[in-house]
């Protein structure tokens, strides 16, 4: 996974402007029934934020998937660049001491 936002558009040179009358693209994040974090579920087009929320409700919660919706215009989402993958994410691979399984606790101690 090299992009924070899987739906983000590829980086443009700034020259290509959106079509004059195409509704902007929005990214939709939904928090499900079980209290987990909002999760990116997809994108849609809408003229403004209110409409984007309505559409997100109609498009992405048809099967009772959510209890809360966030929308953000796609162009406002900042993302890591693929080239940063090594420096950003590989250093954490060596920090095994952050994971509970790194530590051996005798069975006699009981659940910990």
């Amino acid at each position: 996974m090299s992009s924070v936002n899987p739906g983000a558009l590829p980086e443009t040179d700034g020259k290509s402007t959106p079509r004059r009358n195409e509704w902007p693209l929005w990214e939709v994040f939904i928090r499900g029934q079980h209290g987990l974090n909002h999760r990116h579920v997809g994108s849609l087009h809408a003229p403004d934020a209110e409409a984007a929320i309505h559409h997100a409700r109609d498009v992405y919660t048809r099967r009772n998937e959510g209890v809360s919706i966030w929308v953000a215009e796609s162009r406002h989402i900042a993302a890591t660049a693929p080239g940063d993958k090594g420096p950003l994410f590989e250093p954490s691979e060596s920090k095994v001491y952050r994971h509970p399984t790194f530590y051996d606790i005798p069975d006699d101690v009981g659940h910990m």
Partner: peptide, 15 residues
């Protein structure tokens, strides 16, 4: 709609 959105990540517009 989902599929158009997937295509849009490749730099084309739905319109």
């Amino acid at each position: 709609l989902y599929l158009y959105a997937a295509a849009e990540t490749l730099g084309v517009s739905r319109d």
